[in-house]
């Protein structure tokens, strides 16, 4: 785990890395003032993203940070991987689509839980997913 001005950065390569990320995410969300249900929801979305890296991308990083926009504060998670990339983002973000053996609900559920979700990917260049949740 690394800490810099951009927040907490975690290396993700094996299943056990997910635990550290989830605990840190929940800690951070609690400190930011998200209620228990939101903490659980967002931590689950974070877990979804880091599990995705392990399952599809093999290696990558998860960055957690607190962000500000005018008078709003929010939680941001950035998931980067060095995997094969997503060939059809539109398709991947749809419900019930899965290229692996999951339930096919992963990315679409992240989109549903978070307020903003941006996916950048190019075949052969890995994937970067940035998701934000504002504190109401």
């Amino acid at each position: 785990m690394g800490k810099n001005s951009d927040g907490l950065v975690f290396e993700v390569s094996e299943p056990s890395d997910n635990a550290t990320i989830v605990y840190n995410a929940r800690q951070m969300l609690l400190q930011m003032g998200f209620d228990e249900t939101r903490q659980y929801l967002i931590a689950s979305a974070v877990s979804e993203l880091s599990t995705n890296i392990i399952r599809y991308g093999e290696k990558g990083t998860i960055t957690l940070r607190c962000i500000r926009k005018s008078d709003k504060i929010g939680f941001e998670v950035i998931a980067r991987d060095c995997g094969p990339g997503i060939s059809d983002i539109q398709k991947a973000a749809t419900e019930n689509y899965s290229s692996g053996h999951g339930l096919g609900l992963g990315l679409s559920s992240v989109k549903r839980i978070m307020d903003e979700c941006e996916i950048k990917s190019a075949r052969g260049h890995g994937t970067c997913i940035i998701a934000k949740k504002w504190l109401m």
């Binding site: 635990a19 659980y40 931590a43 877990s47 599990t51 339930l103 992963g106």
Partner: peptide, 10 residues
């Protein structure tokens, strides 16, 4: 359980 993502639910 600390978080339930689709993998855990699965």
């Amino acid at each position: 359980v600390a978080a339930v993502d689709t993998a855990v639910a699965n």
